[in-house]
Simulated assay, not measured.
Amino acid sequence: MKFVHWLLLGCVVAMPLSASAQWQWIDKNGKKVFSDQAPPPDVPEKNILRRVGPAPGARSTANPNVDAAPAEGAADAAAATPAKAAAAPKPTGVDKELEEKTRKAEADAKTKQAAEAAKVAQAKAENCTRARQAKATVDSGMRIARVNAQGEREIMDDTARAAEQKRVQSVIDADCK
């Protein structure tokens, strides 16, 4: 009885292996198709992107007929092979719709980034203008009053004025470039 359980367990474990044999091709409408069955015969060989077994005509690099062919014929065959490879378009395996969506997403990201940079530049320009106005006010020598944490009005003394000049100057150095 234990043998039957092990056999059943082995069959269950081996079932997903059959799903690993997948075909991938581009149909006549330009859509990618994934299947566990071979594509229909009207699909050209160049549109088959992935297959279960080796590609037809794909053999090892060693040619068994090299000894029988003369040296000149071998050179002509070697010259013709790259020409065929260059003439035949290679499937890229990239979905055109996916490429378009990716391009659009990248363009949107660049647009958002440019808008964000414009906002930051505008905020810096406003900060610069305000800091220059504050610097002119502090440097004018007029008496300046502030409201403290208790809501009381207090006049800035020389040390507070120097600290405020230093703070405003640091803002100008940071934002006015």
Results as ranks from 00 to 15, higher is better:
6 W>H: 05
7 L>D: 02
8 L>C: 10
14 A>P: 02
15 M>F: 12
15 M>G: 02
24 Q>D: 01
27 D>L: 12
27 D>M: 07
28 K>F: 09
30 G>P: 00
33 V>S: 03
35 S>W: 06
35 S>E: 03
35 S>M: 07
39 P>M: 06
40 P>C: 07
45 E>D: 15
46 K>T: 08
48 I>A: 02
48 I>V: 15
52 V>N: 07
55 A>L: 14
57 G>Q: 05
57 G>R: 09
60 S>K: 09
63 N>V: 06
64 P>S: 07
65 N>S: 10
68 A>S: 11
69 A>G: 00
70 P>K: 06
70 P>G: 10
72 E>D: 15
76 D>C: 08
84 K>H: 06
88 A>S: 13
93 G>N: 02
93 G>T: 07
95 D>A: 07
96 K>S: 09
96 K>M: 09
99 E>N: 07
100 E>T: 14
101 K>D: 14
102 T>A: 15
105 A>H: 09
106 E>N: 12
111 T>V: 08
116 E>K: 10
117 A>Y: 09
120 V>Q: 14
121 A>I: 03
121 A>S: 12
122 Q>L: 08
124 K>V: 00
124 K>Y: 04
125 A>E: 15
126 E>I: 05
127 N>M: 02
129 T>N: 11
130 R>G: 12
134 A>K: 04
136 A>I: 05
138 V>T: 03
139 D>P: 01
145 A>D: 11
147 V>C: 00
147 V>N: 06
149 A>D: 13
154 E>R: 04
160 A>C: 01
164 E>Y: 06
165 Q>K: 14
165 Q>R: 13
167 R>T: 01
168 V>W: 01
168 V>R: 00
168 V>G: 01
173 D>L: 07
174 A>C: 00
